[in-house]
Measured scan of single mutants.
Amino acid sequence: KKVTINGVEIKFNNPEEAVKFALELAKRLNLRIEFHGDQIKIE
């Protein structure tokens, strides 16, 4: 399963991993996060 985070394609074994990764990243950098299907936007 491929997920695009800020235009960067990252391959994950499952979608939950991708979501956890994105949330952790957003929390660490104190950023806002948006989900659009397989696209995750962090700003």
Rank of each mutant, 00 (worst) to 15 (best):
K1C: 15
K1G: 10
K1I: 15
K1H: 14
K1W: 15
K2C: 15
K2N: 09
K2I: 15
K2A: 09
K2G: 05
K2R: 12
K2M: 13
V3I: 10
V3G: 04
V3P: 05
V3N: 03
V3T: 04
V3F: 04
T4E: 04
T4D: 03
T4F: 14
T4C: 15
T4V: 14
T4H: 08
T4M: 13
T4Q: 05
T4K: 08
T4R: 05
T4I: 14
I5E: 02
I5H: 03
I5W: 10
N6Y: 11
N6D: 06
N6H: 10
N6L: 14
N6C: 15
N6S: 05
G7Q: 04
G7H: 04
V8P: 02
V8N: 03
V8D: 01
V8C: 15
V8S: 03
V8A: 04
V8H: 10
V8Y: 13
E9W: 10
E9C: 15
E9A: 08
E9F: 08
I10S: 02
I10Y: 12
I10V: 05
I10A: 01
I10R: 02
I10F: 11
K11D: 06
K11N: 14
F12G: 01
F12N: 01
F12R: 00
F12A: 01
N13E: 11
N13Y: 09
N13V: 07
N13H: 07
N13M: 12
N13G: 09
N14W: 11
N14C: 13
N14S: 13
N14P: 10
N14A: 07
P15G: 10
P15H: 13
P15D: 08
P15V: 13
P15W: 15
P15F: 15
P15Y: 15
E16M: 11
E16W: 14
E16T: 08
E16V: 11
E17R: 04
E17M: 10
E17V: 07
E17D: 12
E17S: 07
E17C: 15
E17N: 06
A18M: 14
A18N: 03
A18C: 15
A18I: 12
A18G: 04
A18K: 03
A18Q: 03
A18E: 03
A18D: 02
V19F: 12
V19N: 03
V19D: 02
V19I: 14
V19R: 09
V19L: 14
V19Q: 04
V19Y: 13
V19A: 06
V19E: 05
K20V: 04
K20R: 12
K20I: 09
K20C: 15
K20T: 04
F21I: 12
F21N: 03
F21Q: 05
F21W: 13
F21E: 03
A22L: 15
A22Y: 10
A22R: 00
A22P: 00
A22Q: 00
A22W: 14
L23K: 07
L23S: 04
L23N: 06
L23P: 00
L23V: 08
E24T: 05
E24S: 05
E24F: 06
E24D: 09
E24N: 05
E24L: 08
E24H: 03
E24R: 04
E24M: 08
E24K: 05
E24I: 08
L25H: 01
L25G: 00
L25A: 02
L25V: 06
L25D: 00
L25M: 07
L25K: 00
A26P: 00
A26Q: 02
A26L: 12
A26R: 01
A26N: 01
A26K: 01
A26W: 03
K27A: 12
K27G: 08
K27T: 07
K27I: 07
K27L: 10
K27W: 05
K27S: 09
K27F: 07
K27Q: 08
K27P: 03
K27E: 09
K27Y: 05
R28D: 05
R28K: 08
R28F: 08
R28C: 15
R28A: 08
R28P: 01
R28M: 10
R28Y: 11
L29H: 09
L29N: 03
L29T: 03
L29Q: 02
L29M: 07
L29W: 05
L29I: 05
L29S: 02
L29P: 01
L29A: 03
N30V: 06
N30D: 06
N30K: 09
N30Y: 09
N30A: 06
N30R: 09
N30F: 10
N30P: 03
N30L: 09
L31T: 03
L31Q: 00
L31H: 01
L31F: 04
L31Y: 03
R32V: 12
R32K: 12
R32T: 11
R32D: 04
R32L: 09
I33Q: 00
I33C: 06
I33F: 03
I33G: 00
I33S: 00
E34A: 05
E34L: 07
E34D: 04
E34G: 03
E34W: 06
F35A: 02
F35H: 03
F35N: 01
F35Q: 04
F35M: 06
F35W: 12
F35V: 08
H36G: 07
H36P: 03
H36I: 13
H36V: 12
G37I: 06
G37C: 10
G37N: 09
G37D: 08
D38N: 11
D38L: 07
D38M: 08
D38W: 10
D38I: 11
D38A: 04
Q39W: 14
Q39V: 14
Q39E: 13
Q39G: 10
Q39N: 13
I40E: 01
I40R: 01
I40G: 01
I40H: 01
I40L: 06
I40V: 06
K41N: 09
K41R: 13
K41I: 14
K41H: 08
K41E: 04
K41Y: 14
K41D: 02
I42G: 01
I42H: 03
I42L: 13
I42V: 07
I42R: 01
I42T: 01
I42A: 00
I42M: 05
E43F: 15
E43I: 15
E43T: 15
E43M: 14
E43L: 14
E43Y: 15
E43G: 12
